[in-house]
């Protein structure tokens, strides 16, 4: 392949005129990737009256914003948004395009990747540029897309060696937010939007927004329960312990699937990534997808009946035993110490 572009693009997701946190986090990561490729970082901003978002992206390292504004684009809809990106990507063929692994990103990125025949890797936990040898061929400055796979039992490094465009999605909280002290010199390129009859195939009738009251990302203490608790009744112990310690309740994916705890409180690769001061994992076996979301906690306590559970390998303190027995003891001891 010759004459590959060295541009890194980030799709900036906006809801009600505000950029999503994950998009800003991706700009910070994209800035580092672009430096390595010696290319520009470009933000794609789509919406109605969203110039202020374009300005904001410069603080995070964008060199240029591709700005598409139209009243038809106020809310995200698959068909017009994907059409815009398809056209831009086919025209400019950027080397890397990053999306947040949100509902919008997961709806949009695959459709665009299909249309532009690009490689796409979902839920990456790490992105890196490197030169590697694949099947005896040197791939220079290729994007290494690293993600747990197969239920988290393996870590796969995915590459797109033969296509000009490499795409990846990343969950919120995975990449660090690091605004620039002094924004780059930058420019805004307005791109006209041409409405199309297919845009009307799906109409939004109504939207309901619930303020997300759960703030796992910012919680200093998290008590998380897993499938090992066995019943919803036992899961109440997690709430009791969290309440006493002044922490937030979270769960593993298995606990969410079992209905013990809502999805907003899921920690892990397909949930939230957290970095609390204290993380207490109760009845969580510790598959890597879960660990990917909590292993950077300052202190980890694991409580599990299975002494061989993988969670013990990353825990600072391990207690082998039944939560039903341990948690009340923990609560008693804590209350007693505070007296």
């Amino acid at each position: 392949m010759q004459n590959l572009s060295n541009e890194v693009w980030v799709f900036i997701e906006q809801r009600n005129g505000k950029p999503a946190d994950v998009s800003l986090e991706l700009l910070c990561k994209g800035r580092k990737l672009a430096e390595q490729l010696h290319g520009p970082l470009k933000a794609v901003v789509i919406g109605e009256d969203v110039k202020s978002i374009a300005d904001e992206t410069f603080k995070y390292g964008a060199n240029e914003v591709l700005l598409i504004q139209h009243k038809e684009l106020k809310n995200y809809r698959t068909l017009p948004y994907s059409r815009i990106l398809n056209d831009l990507i086919i025209k400019f063929s950027p080397r890397i395009v990053l999306f947040g692994a949100t509902v919008i990103g997961r709806d949009l990125a695959p459709r665009v990747a299909s249309n532009t025949k690009s490689g796409l890797t979902a839920d990456c936990t790490e992105l890196r540029i490197d030169t590697i040898t694949y099947l005896g061929k040197e791939c220079k400055d290729i994007l290494l897309q690293i993600r747990p796979a197969f239920g988290g039992n393996i870590i796969a490094t995915i590459i797109t060696p033969d296509n000009p465009v490499q795409m990846a999605t990343v969950r919120e909280g995975v990449m660090e937010l690091s605004p620039l002290e002094k924004p780059n010199k930058s420019k805004i390129t307005e791109i006209p939007f041409l409405p199309d009859p297919t845009d009307a195939l799906v109409e939004i009738i109504e939207q309901f927004h619930q303020e997300n009251k759960v703030n796992l990302k910012g919680a200093p203490i998290i008590v998380a329960g897993g499938y090992g608790l066995g019943t919803a009744a036992n899961f109440k112990l997690i709430h009791e312990l969290a309440h006493v310690l002044g922490g937030e309740v979270a769960g593993s994916r298995a606990a969410v699937d079992a209905g013990f705890v809502p999805h907003e409180r899921q920690v892990g690769q397909t949930g939230v990534t957290v970095r609390p001061k204290l993380y207490i994992a109760v009845g969580i076996s510790g598959a890597i997808q879960h660990r990917a979301g909590m292993q950077e906690a300052n202190k980890i306590i694991a409580i599990n009946t299975d002494p061989d559970a993988p969670i013990f390998q990353i825990a600072h303190y391990g207690i082998v035993g039944d939560a039903v027995d341990i948690i009340p003891k923990f609560i008693d001891a804590y209350k007693h110490k505070l007296k």
């Binding site: 694949y134 988290g152 393996i154 870590i155 490094t157 995915i158 797109t160 390998q313 990353i314 825990a315």
Partner: peptide, 15 residues
């Protein structure tokens, strides 16, 4: 277009 370059089984080392 996407290829698996490398797969590492997750080995849990003692902490």
């Amino acid at each position: 277009p996407t290829k698996v370059h490398k797969v590492e089984s997750v080995v849990l080392a003692g902490g």
